[in-house]
């Protein structure tokens, strides 16, 4: 088994095919979308492949260490940051092909007009623990 992160971007991904911002959808379209995501997660739990799903607020803060005894420096949010993560799903699947298959299905979530968004999702493998047998 291999774990993969399916990463969804607010910004930074190539444009989706059905690229209408969510606030221009009808309320029903939003409900349908949310239900699709829930059903998708429930289905993956049923197949024994679901690990985690989380959504992130659109705005965050940059933080860095500022030396001994000093409070951390904070900055942002930066409106110009190119890459902005919207959320993720973590799956535990048989291999890369299955991860791509599932990401494709997730990308088909309905958006404006009830049509699939075709949004780009980033599929990233997790680094594993080292195998016990090494040679």
């Amino acid at each position: 088994m291999a774990k993969y992160l399916l990463l969804k971007h607010y910004r930074g991904a190539p444009a989706a095919v059905n690229d209408v911002p969510m606030d221009r959808w009808t309320p029903e379209e939003i409900s349908t979308h949310v239900q699709y995501m829930r059903d998708f997660a429930a289905r993956l739990e049923g197949t024994g492949e679901f690990v985690d799903a989380q959504a992130l607020a659109a705005e965050g803060t940059w933080v860095r260490y500022d030396g001994e005894g000093r409070p951390p420096v904070t900055d942002g949010p930066f409106a110009e940051t190119k890459d902005l993560i919207a959320g993720w799903m973590v799956i535990d699947v048989g291999g890369y092909e299955r991860a791509v298959e599932l990401a494709g299905e997730l990308s088909a979530a309905p958006g404006a007009g009830g049509q699939p968004i075709h949004e780009w999702l980033e599929v990233r493998p997790f680094l594993t623990e080292p195998p016990t047998i090494t040679e």
Binding site: K3, E45, G46, G48, F50, V51, D92
Partner: peptide, 15 residues
């Protein structure tokens, strides 16, 4: 042991 939620593993086993 396999770092997945218990509900997921339960489904995997019952399937």
């Amino acid at each position: 042991a396999y770092l997945v939620p218990e509900a997921t593993m339960a489904q995997r086993i019952s399937r």
